[in-house]
Structure formats: structure tokens, C-alpha cells
């Protein structure tokens, strides 16, 4: 059981590092010969992937998956609130620009 906990932690680390490296590909695919260009898809993907990492750190590294249901629900709600707030600020900003 202890070995599986260590393995699970290692897998979580591999996943969050892999997501971080994916950013390189997203970044290069979005730019025009080294010049940064605006992209709604990249912005939404960046925020989405960051929140996936945020959730993995909470669940695996911070051990929330073994926490009482109330704390699990509060942290899930936190992720949803952050997602909605960030995307709303971005899209409202674009709409009124």
C-alpha cells in the first residue's frame, strides 16, 4: 500500500511536468515566426491546463483525496470559481475592448 502511494505520487509528478512541457508546443504553435499573436484558444487552453495542474496538486500532493468530503467539495468548488472568474474577466475584457 505504501509502495502504491509512492508510485501514485510519482505518476502525479510526471503528469504535472508533462503538462508544463506541453505549454512549449502550445506556445510555438500559436506564434507567427517568433512574434507573439493573440489567441483565444491558447488563452483558454493555458488556463484550463493550469487548473488541471492546480487540481492534481491539491488532490495528490496536498492529499485532499483522503480528506473529509467537505474539504474535497470546497477545493473542487474553488477550482470551478477560479475557472469561471478568470474566463469571465478575459471574455468580458475582450467584449468591452
Amino acid at each position: 500500500m505504501e509502495t502504491s502511494a509512492k508510485k501514485r505520487l510519482l505518476v502525479a509528478w510526471v503528469v504535472v511536468v508533462a503538462i508544463t512541457v506541453i505549454y512549449l508546443w502550445i506556445d510555438r504553435s500559436a506564434d507567427d515566426r517568433g512574434v507573439l499573436v493573440s489567441s483565444v484558444a491558447v488563452t483558454v487552453a493555458a488556463i484550463g491546463l493550469a487548473l488541471v495542474k492546480f487540481r492534481i496538486i491539491l488532490g495528490e500532493f496536498m492529499d485532499v483525496r483522503h480528506a473529509p468530503r467537505a474539504l474535497r467539495r470546497i477545493t473542487d468548488l474553488l477550482v470551478v470559481v477560479i475557472a469561471m472568474a478568470l474566463l469571465s474577466a478575459y471574455f468580458v475584457g475582450r467584449a468591452v475592448a
Partner: peptide, 26 residues
Amino acid sequence: VFESLVFTSYFCVYLYDRAQHEHAFL
């Protein structure tokens, strides 16, 4: 939770500001 919300509120200001001045931010 509290600090996450404080940082999130600042992130919102940043994203809103960024969307307003996209070219300068890029």
C-alpha cells in the same frame, strides 16, 4: 482558500486589463 481567492481577484484584474490592451501586452 482565502489566498487563492485573493490571487484570483488580482488575476482577473490582469486578464481584464490584458484584454483591453492586447497588442501592448503581447
